[in-house]
Design a protein around this nucleic acid. Structure first.
Lengths: 131, 131
DNA sequence: AATAAAGCCTAGTAAATTAGTAGGAGATTG
DNA sequence: CAATCTCCTACTAATTTACTAGGCTTTATT
């Protein structure tokens, strides 16, 4: 039940982009330096976030990354589901589980899954970086 | 953010013991066979649960395991914290984090941690196995 | 008292996952 | 056209997880 560093760094990167939303795009080298993450690793995370249309990227010289929408329109749940394999806590929640019927644990995992997701969906990226 | 099989099997074992609470102790070989888990692996999980005083064990021939308290007095949170390393979702929640102050992600993890724990503490083992 | 049936303990190993590296190809700007 | 950037994919190292193994201790039964 530990969060992956993908999720930890990924959310940090999103916070960073939220703080720079008004300013404009930030290049990978800049971000990596500011966040103190290896360029190559951060690049992968941003790639995932871009493919999920949470960030936009512009290529070429003076290119970089920006949030694709207003930080207040992005929920933390959205972000983490992208970075953390859908936030599925046990495989049988998505794959279908043979034990599903004869054990009461399945219901626990299902409820916990729902709880986590709905909780994280109530928080927006905007709200957590303001202050 | 996947649950370990330790937690999955461990909770199953606890449900099993809850169902047999009135009946009495169940031996490891019996449990392992019924739950379809290797004896040796299950033994380790039960060892952990015993050390946390969630189950009682009696040694020697015709010995075995029972819940240490009424299933309604054991919360799922209690059980999972024992099996899942305190349910700490990121290390900095317990170790102290250098980034704690300059990033807003720490608060997210903290709130999520609290949410998960308080949710799981509202469910008792008794309530999930009844019916 | 002997034996068998249990739990206890700890070390070790194999498999899987995660974290991080590397390098080159394609775009864009000045 | 050169510099600066993103994009893509394969690979490797490190860590964690899941599981196995074996010997010791305790207790009930005969």
């Amino acid at each position: 039940m530990k969060l992956s560093s993908k999720a930890r760094y990924g959310l940090k990167a999103m916070c960073y982009l939220a703080n720079n939303y008004e300013i404009g795009t930030k290049s990978l080298p800049t971000m990596a330096a500011d966040l103190d993450i290896s360029e190559k690793y951060l690049e992968q995370l941003l790639g995932v976030l871009r493919k999920s249309t949470l960030v936009d990227a512009t290529r070429g010289a003076s290119g970089g990354y920006v949030l694709a929408k207003n930080p207040y329109d992005i929920s933390i749940g959205e972000i983490l589901r992208v970075l953390e394999d859908g936030l599925v806590i046990v495989d049988c929640l998505q794959g279908g589980c043979s034990n599903q019927c004869n054990c009461s644990t399945y219901d626990v995992w299902k409820k916990l899954y729902k709880e986590i997701n709905s909780f994280l969906d109530t928080m927006s990226l905007g709200s957590i970086v303001e202050k």
